[in-house]
Simulated scan of single mutants.
Amino acid sequence: MLLKLLLWTVRLLTLALIVVSLLPEIPSGHWAIRLWEFPRLQLSLVIAVTLLLLTLHAWIGRARKEHALLLVALLATGAWQGSHILPFTPVWPDEVAEADAQTLANQSTLKIMTANLDFTNDRYAEAVEVIKREDPDVVLLIEVDSGWEAGLAPLDELYAYREGDVRGEGLGIVVWSRIPLQDARVEHLVSERRASIFATLAVPGIGPVRYAGIHPVPPGLKERTPNDGGDTERRDSRERDAELMLVAERVAEDADNRWIVTGDFNDAAWSNTTKLFKSLSELEDPRRGRGLLSTYHTEYPLWRYPIDHMFVSDGFELVELDRVTIEGSDHFAITTTLTAAAKDQAPPDAPQEAQEDADELIEEGADDASEQGVSS
Rank of each mutant, 00 (worst) to 15 (best):
I260N: 02
V261Q: 04
E253S: 14
A248E: 04
E253N: 14
E249T: 08
V261H: 03
V247F: 02
N227C: 02
A255C: 09
P226A: 04
R240T: 09
A269Q: 14
N227Y: 07
D267A: 14
L246A: 04
T232L: 14
R240P: 09
R224K: 15
E249A: 12
N272R: 14
D236Q: 06
L244N: 05
F265L: 15
N227I: 08
R238V: 03
T225K: 08
V261D: 03
T273N: 11
R235T: 08
V261W: 02
N266P: 11
T225A: 12
D241Y: 07
N227P: 00
D264I: 10
N227E: 13
R235S: 07
G263I: 05
E253D: 15
E249N: 12
R240M: 09
N266E: 11
R224T: 13
A242D: 07
A242G: 11
D231M: 10
A269K: 05
R235K: 15
G229Y: 05
G263K: 04
D231Q: 13
D264N: 13
V247Y: 01
R250C: 00
V251P: 06
D256C: 01
P226Q: 03
N272A: 15
A268I: 05
W270I: 12
N272C: 00
F265P: 11
V251W: 01
D236W: 06
A269H: 11
G263Y: 01
G229Q: 07
G229H: 07
R235F: 09
P226V: 05
D267I: 09
T225W: 01
R250N: 07
L246W: 00
I260H: 02
T225E: 12
A248Y: 02
A268M: 04
A242I: 10
F265I: 10
L246H: 02
R224H: 03
W270M: 11
D236T: 10
E249C: 01
R224G: 15
E233V: 10
E243P: 13
E249W: 01
R250H: 09
V261T: 08
S271M: 09
R234N: 11
I260M: 09
T274S: 13
D256Q: 14
R234V: 00
N257K: 13
D264P: 02
S237G: 12
D267P: 04
I260C: 03
N227R: 14
G229F: 05
R234H: 11
E233F: 06
A268N: 14
R250S: 13
D236G: 14
W259F: 11
W259E: 04
E249S: 08
D228S: 14
S237Y: 13
D267F: 13
A255L: 03
E253Q: 15
L246Q: 13
G263Q: 05
V247E: 03
V251D: 04
T274V: 15
V247R: 05
F265V: 10
N227H: 12
W259R: 08
A242S: 12
E253P: 00
E243I: 08
A242Q: 07
R238Y: 02
T262E: 09
A252N: 04
A269E: 13
R238Q: 13
L244Y: 03
N257V: 01
S271Y: 08
G229T: 10
R240E: 09
R224P: 00
R238E: 15
E233D: 10
